[in-house]
């Protein structure tokens, strides 16, 4: 299983740290399934990642829950933007 770094920003970074190493149980995987897989790996992921307002970014671009990701891509979860 591939190790993958997941990044967090805003209040998620405060709750979970700036980044965490996780196991990519399968790949490619949809963001929807990745949320479930991560929630199973750590209790604090569960609360943070089921919130539908928390969006995923792949390689710096916001994606939908249907998007497929592979190990090695830059994956981040972000709360709603506050704007400037």
């Amino acid at each position: 299983m591939a190790q993958q770094k997941i990044y967090f920003f805003g209040r998620l970074a405060e709750q979970l740290g700036r980044s965490r190493e996780v196991e990519m149980v399968e790949e490619p995987i949809t963001i929807r399934d990745l949320r479930v897989a991560l929630a199973a790996q750590a209790v604090d992921f569960a609360d943070a990642l089921v919130d539908p307002r928390v969006r995923a970014c792949v390689d710096g671009v916001i994606v939908t829950d249907d998007a497929l990701v592979r190990a090695g891509q830059e994956i981040a979860f972000i709360p709603p933007l506050s704007g400037g």
Partner: peptide, 27 residues
Amino acid sequence: RLKSDAGFWKREDTATGSHWIEPTAQD
């Protein structure tokens, strides 16, 4: 546009604590 669409997450700090803010209806 910057007020709503710029990629920032803002946290207000006070003497007693802090909280993260989200875009407002006015924005």
